[in-house]
Simulated assay, not measured.
Amino acid sequence: MDLLRSPGGCPWDAAQTHESLVPFALEEAHEVAEAIELGDRAGMREELGDLLLQVVFHARLAQEHPSDAFDLDDVARGVAAKLVRRHPHVFDADGSLLGEDAGAEGGPTAEPESADVVHARWDRIKKVEKQRTSVLDGIPLAQGALARGQKVLSRARRGGLMIEVDAVARQHDAATPAGLDDSALDDSALDDRALDDRGFGARLLLLAAEAELAGVDAEAALRSALRTLEDAVRASEAG
């Protein structure tokens, strides 16, 4: 990457900025998810490499900043330190394993905790570190609405906040439209249903809440259903 960004390297790579690379990072992350969901091991290896390239690229760009430069080593050290801070049930403050001096084998000495307890502690530590005032701080606005909705619900639940999602949905749309049946979705099927964006939003929020309670990744489930739809479209095209 140093060579690509240097004089005599690649004009395209040399012209890139953090901002111009954002779409590529998002695309590569989605391609990693797709390879994992399809069980494509070779594809996953390749796509993880492409995603890693984005990290390397951004770190190389960051070295060129005139006043706040950092490099790939700084990024790695930062994430290693974060893992230590946010796993106090595993590490001492100096990064050694809990109980490492207590016995030959070392390792955590406390009773095992549930994943939910560990996740809730992670959120609390993050809130203090980043001086956040809400459990919702830090959820990316650019995230897809379905995935973001489920993230909001998850954060609220882990934060001990009791949110009546049904009431929120009713507040958003006092008269939720009747549900769709399994008939073909064409214009005539929709004419008499008074389906507007608020009604759809309320129903999607309720589905996200249902997925959260069931432990289902709503975004991944929708991607899976879309793949089935895409297969049907291609089969229809093939005649």
Results as ranks from 00 to 15, higher is better:
131 Q>Y: 03
216 V>Y: 02
21 L>K: 15
230 E>R: 15
128 V>M: 11
90 V>Q: 06
62 A>N: 14
116 D>P: 01
179 G>D: 13
18 H>E: 11
30 H>V: 03
236 S>H: 12
54 Q>N: 10
212 E>G: 06
35 A>W: 02
164 E>S: 14
17 T>V: 03
154 S>F: 06
93 A>V: 10
5 R>E: 04
102 A>F: 04
103 G>E: 04
136 L>H: 10
131 Q>G: 05
222 L>Y: 10
168 V>W: 08
116 D>K: 11
100 E>Q: 03
48 L>Q: 10
221 A>P: 00
99 G>T: 02
169 A>M: 02
190 L>P: 05
54 Q>H: 06
91 F>I: 04
138 G>W: 06
126 K>V: 08
157 R>M: 08
221 A>N: 09
209 A>F: 04
149 G>C: 11
21 L>H: 14
92 D>E: 13
188 S>F: 01
117 V>I: 09
144 G>I: 02
167 A>S: 13
226 L>I: 08
194 A>T: 06
158 R>W: 11
41 R>M: 11
23 P>Q: 03
99 G>E: 03
218 A>T: 09
109 T>F: 03
91 F>V: 04
14 A>E: 08
29 A>M: 13
82 K>W: 12
91 F>Q: 03
133 T>E: 12
162 M>A: 15
48 L>Y: 06
10 C>T: 08
102 A>H: 05
28 E>R: 11
190 L>T: 11
68 D>L: 04
92 D>V: 01
3 L>D: 10
213 L>E: 14
157 R>G: 00
21 L>F: 09
218 A>N: 05
128 V>A: 15
224 S>W: 00
79 V>Y: 08
29 A>I: 09
55 V>A: 14
41 R>P: 00
120 A>K: 08
27 E>V: 02
32 V>Y: 03
98 L>A: 04
184 A>T: 09
227 R>K: 12
154 S>W: 09
11 P>D: 08
140 P>W: 04
34 E>I: 00
177 P>N: 11
62 A>P: 00
166 D>E: 13
116 D>M: 02
11 P>Y: 07
139 I>S: 09
216 V>M: 06
61 L>W: 07
220 A>K: 11
125 I>G: 02
237 E>Q: 13
26 L>R: 15
57 F>D: 13
124 R>Q: 14
223 R>W: 05
94 D>S: 03
64 E>N: 07
184 A>G: 01
210 E>S: 12
88 P>F: 03
5 R>N: 11
194 A>I: 01
9 G>N: 09
30 H>I: 00
43 G>T: 08
150 Q>K: 04
28 E>N: 04
54 Q>C: 14
